[in-house]
Design a protein around this nucleic acid. Sequence first.
DNA 1: TATAAGATTTACT
DNA 2: GTAAATCTTATAT
Length: 201
Amino acid sequence: MPKLQRSFYLREDVVQISKELLGKYLFTNINNKLTGGIIIETEAYDGVKDSACHAYKGRRTQRTEIMYHRGGVGYVYLCYGIHSLFNVITNSKDTPEAILIRSILPVEGIDTMLKRRNKSTEKALTGGPGTVSQALGISCDHNGTDLIGNSIWIEDKGLVIQEKDITSGIRVGVESAGRDGLLPYRFKINIGSKVLEKGRS
DNA sequence: TATAAGATTTACT
DNA sequence: GTAAATCTTATAT
């Protein structure tokens, strides 16, 4: 059974889970359109310890409420009024840890994703948190969606990512030198040749 | 009730 | 490379 079960998300080490999500397949079945791709970049939000996390030092509001849910549900929230960012909630109830899916490699339903993104090429199709959600059809309505259900789920197709092929942190970063290089919890797969990176200049 | 800031993307100079 | 778009949430009156 390829679909990840609840037990996968309920573990305690959000950083470890972030690494394990690399190479997994994220699928959505929204509006009868199946779309999905390989997760190639994640970012861990380590609950109360992470100053960048919405639930930093136990902050609990209507928006972050879902983070206190038990693991295995989706946390979607709107950023800058424009972008829906998709997170995976981990750990048990009352432990607000989450993993942001930063980018995926399109595999299934690419046509649909292109339409949703209003693009004609795969380039920069799913190169950032906001665009991933848009391509997959994830919107704020999916906040709290159970990842064990049949709208959004993650599959393990046996793809193994070796430790040496994972870039962690951001300082090594070459291309991601945007701003806020503060977070040490970013992970991504090194894809030698064909990298789907942010198509920026 | 009102104001400020934000886990970003896109377009333009 | 720089700046604008855009709206929800959080924090302060």
